[in-house]
Amino acid sequence: MSAEVTTFGPDRLSRHGRAASIALRMLKDRGFVVICILAATSSILVLSWLLWSILSSGLTYLDWAFLDDVPSRKPEKAGMGPAIIGSVLVCAVCAFFALPIGVGSAVFLEEYKPTKGKWVKRLHAFVQLNISNLAGVPSIVYGIIGLTVFVEMFGLFGSANDPALAIGSHPFEASDGSSYLEQAWYYFQLPIGRGVLAGALTLMLVILPVVIISAQEALRAVPDSLRHAALGVGATRWQMVSKVSLPAAVPGIMTGSILAMSRAIGEAAPMLVIAGIVFITYTPLHLMDDFTVMPLQIYEWAKKPQEAFHAVAASGIIVLLAVLLGFNALAVFIRNKFHKPLS
């Protein structure tokens, strides 16, 4: 309906249509708030429920001996000593490889942005895109890749039981006359087999995108004015990076890396492909040795039909969550303690 008379001020609206009920609109607003609060609190409820159910069943078997004992067929005797040591070893070796490569990639992506050359720019953009896409690859796929590349090494060096190359083993004659190969702590073989090293390298593939992305964020938080100042007094690119950007980004990089490592500790799927379920009653002696990790041990217990083992699994989960809590606390501590304003 076209207005025949042009109106001004409050009249303009009142001549057109019906007034929407303010009360109804406010009711919708309030109703939505209620729905929101319900949805938001549901996540808090779920988390508390989850933690409560695990604590209530897991505390049965949890004592100091549980941390030290080896797995057992009897639930009351079972412990996760080898799994804890395995997790620590695998994650340490994994960090040894993942952190330098990850931080290096982040430095390349953030500090060596090409300004000239179409192809260099494309390569740069492609690497960046590739990393965000790698973060979305299911971890079990990395497990399969790790199995082929690290464990079997494409079969180029024979099988793991009959390695083409073995360093650090020597024949040892036992007192009963039987002889076998004793392996030193630095034992190394090709292919590396289903050992700690293969697990760590596979885990590196899983968390590399996480490390890169978090290190990039830390570097991005360093203001450009500092970079310009360094370049302005004649620093080379690497001098700028090593003396200004990286030191300023270290707290952020450390926080991100610790969180990435806590992700690594909780990963079960790729470890399951690499290590399989093995009944291990000793801690790994060298990097080629069989191993298990905490989440894998928990999986094994949870999979058992006996109810009692579910309680053992819950105990294991408590230990795992405690370790993760420690990691996160450390990350928060570093963030608060060392995070200085940069300008």
Binding site: S225, A230, G232, V233, A235, P247, S343
Partner: peptide, 28 residues
């Protein structure tokens, strides 16, 4: 860039000590 000194719009000291800020360029 060494031969040309630049002072920027906003003060941008490095998050280092006063001494290290001044010594930064010469040490490079």
């Amino acid at each position: 860039r060494r031969r040309v000194g630049m002072v920027f719009q906003k003060p941008n000291p490095f998050p280092k000590s006063i001494y290290d800020n001044v010594a930064f360029g010469p040490r490079l």
